[in-house]
């Protein structure tokens, strides 16, 4: 029945053990973490993560080999494109939940706690001394949450980080142009620059966190300002780390001679992802740091 691979055939793989390994890995990770939250060590979580990383290495490795051996037709390529595009949309919606929490707190819950809308009597009765503000540096129940001394400004490190990420969006595009004109050297250089900028961003975020903790006393438990700050920047920082790691893998593949001007979807997928974390950062910069 099946003949050798050719450009107009849809490749349907048979039998794969990677998903079940992935499920075992994910379950081990989350069960380990739930146990950690109730006093156990993190050993099980790390074991689970190791299994997940092993699965990703094996699974992606297999896909790379299949791609290199020409098994994937244009139509398979298109399935990957739809898949990646909708995956990024799902990530957009994940961030939307946290942005939604930020907007809700700023537009509704904080003013309402101060008596806005029809809540004047309740506010007077429950939290007579509370005053609405953003960034919120005095929470309704001061005994429960130790608040930050000062808000995180926008024009120091965050502005520099914005410049870094925007530049990295440019460098990854330059890498793409180099790939399309078959200039392997510049492809690798620009990719390496993008990876470096990505990890520089993560490093500066870590530094900013230590500054926030030590100097500003801004913590996750500093009321809703600290909660939204760390949830949004932390989730974003995790995504940048993932994106930079993927870019690193793409760089290594580029050095090995993978990708042609016609066939380099893995590169494009990671570039899309990188632009996505870039755009999310702009939202963060504006709504978390700036206004």
């Amino acid at each position: 029945m099946s003949t050798a691979s050719s450009a107009d055939q849809y490749y349907v793989p048979h039998g794969t053990h990677w998903p079940i390994i992935g499920s075992i890995g994910l379950t081990t990770t989350v069960v380990g973490f739930a146990r950690y939250l109730h006093g156990a060590e993190l050993t099980m979580t790390f074991l689970g993560l190791a299994i997940v990383i092993f699965m990703m290495y094996g699974w992606f490795g297999q896909v790379v080999n299949e791609s290199m051996s020409g098994l994937y037709s244009k139509q398979v390529d298109m399935s990957f494109r739809w898949g990646m595009g909708w995956f990024i949309f799902s990530e957009v919606m994940f961030f939307a939940a946290f942005f939604g929490a930020l907007f809700y707190a700023r537009a509704f819950s904080i003013p309402w706690l101060d008596g806005a809308s029809n809540n004047a009597a309740t506010a007077e009765y429950l939290w007579p001394n509370f005053e609405a503000a953003w960034p919120l540096l005095a929470v309704p129940l001061a005994e429960k949450y130790e608040v930050a001394k000062q808000a995180m400004g926008a024009w120091g490190l965050p502005a520099i980080n914005t410049a870094i990420l925007l530049t990295s969006g440019l460098t990854v595009t330059l890498a793409h142009h180099a790939l399309k004109r078959q200039d392997r050297d510049w492809l690798v250089y620009w990719l390496a620059a993008t990876v470096a900028l990505g990890f520089l961003f993560v490093g500066l975020q870590a530094w900013e966190y230590s500054h926030a903790y030590d100097d500003l006393n801004l913590r996750m438990d500093s009321g809703i300002y600290g909660s939204t700050f760390y949830m949004l920047t932390g989730f974003h920082g995790f995504h940048v780390t993932m994106g930079a790691t993927m870019l690193l893998i793409i760089t290594i593949r580029a050095m090995k001679g993978h990708f042609t001007p016609e066939n380099h979807f893995a590169f494009e997928a990671v570039a899309w992802y990188w632009h996505f974390v870039d755009v999310v950062w702009l939202g963060l910069f504006i709504f978390v740091y700036w206004i």
Partner: peptide, 24 residues
């Protein structure tokens, strides 16, 4: 996202769903 915020409210003292910290 909702269950993630639940998790941090439960264990890391965030106040997404706690009016005492400015959440709701």
């Amino acid at each position: 996202g909702a269950v993630t915020m639940m998790l941090t409210d439960r264990h890391f003292d965030t106040s997404f769903f706690d009016a005492a910290g400015g959440g709701d």
